[in-house]
Amino acid sequence: MRCKWAVIILCLLMLTGCWSRRELNELLIVLGVGIDWEDGEYLISFQVVNPSEISAQKKGGDRPPSTLFQGRGKTMFEAARSLTAEAPRKVYMGHLQLYVISEKLARKGIKEFIDNSFRDNELRMDFNIVVARGTKAENILKLYTPLEKLSSHSMKQSLETSQKNWAPTAAITLDETLNKLSNPGYELALTGIQIIGDPQIGESKHNVESFLPPSRFRYSGIAAFKEDKLIGWLDQQESKGYTDITDNLDSTSIEVACGEHKYMGIEVTSSDTKLKTKIQNGLPEVNVQVRVEANIVDRPCIDVDLMDPATMKHLEEETKKIVQSNMEATVAHAKQIKSDIIGFGNQVGKEHPAYWEQVKDEWNDETFPKTKVHYDIQVFIRKTGTTGNTTMK
Rank of each mutant, 00 (worst) to 15 (best):
Glu148Cys: 01
Thr277Val: 11
Lys276Asp: 10
Gly197Ser: 08
Glu318Cys: 03
Lys149His: 07
Glu255Trp: 12
Gly61Val: 06
Gly32Ser: 04
Asn116Met: 07
Glu176Lys: 12
Ile101Met: 10
Asp250Val: 01
Asn179Phe: 14
Asp361Asn: 12
Ser102Asn: 07
Glu316Phe: 08
Phe225Asp: 05
Ile110Gly: 02
Thr384Val: 13
Ile114Gln: 04
Met392Asn: 12
Ser162Thr: 10
Gly40His: 14
Glu209Thr: 00
Leu212Thr: 03
Gln157Thr: 05
Glu357Ser: 14
Leu178Met: 13
Asp175Phe: 14
Tyr355Thr: 04
Thr273Lys: 02
Ser154His: 14
Gly282Gln: 07
Lys4Ser: 00
Leu141Arg: 04
Ile302Arg: 15
Gly345Leu: 04
Gln57Ala: 15
Glu357Asn: 15
Gly241Ala: 09
Tyr144Trp: 15
Gly349Asp: 06
Lys313Gln: 14
Gly345Met: 08
Arg107Leu: 04
Ile231Asn: 04
Pro146Phe: 11
Asp235Tyr: 09
Asp361Cys: 00
Glu366Asp: 10
Ser204Thr: 08
Thr145His: 03
His314Pro: 00
Leu212Asp: 13
Ile302His: 15
Glu260Thr: 04
Arg218Lys: 15
Pro51Leu: 13
Ile279Pro: 04
Lys338His: 13
Phe69Ser: 03
His95Tyr: 15
Asn248Leu: 11
Glu227Ala: 13
Asp115Tyr: 10
Lys383Val: 00
Leu83Pro: 01
Ser162Val: 01
Gln200Val: 03
Thr177Arg: 05
Tyr263Ala: 01
Pro353Met: 06
Ala80Ser: 14
Ile54Tyr: 09
Asn139Ser: 11
Asn364Ala: 08
Ile29Arg: 06
Pro369Tyr: 12
Glu41Asp: 14
His261Lys: 04
Ser251Ile: 00
Trp19Thr: 01
Val373Asn: 05
Gly40Ile: 09
Val30Trp: 01
Glu267Asn: 00
Trp166Thr: 00
Leu174Val: 01
Ile172Phe: 08
Gln70Met: 15
Lys335Asp: 11
Lys205Pro: 11
Ile254Lys: 01
Gly388Leu: 07
Pro300Ala: 06
Leu43Glu: 06
Asn25Phe: 03
Gln237Ile: 05
Thr311Gly: 07
Cys11Ile: 14
Gly134Phe: 12
Lys108Arg: 15
Pro213Lys: 07
Lys58Ser: 12
Pro184Ala: 02
Gly192His: 09
Glu293Asn: 12
Ala334Leu: 11
Glu209Pro: 02
Gln236Lys: 15
Thr277Met: 10
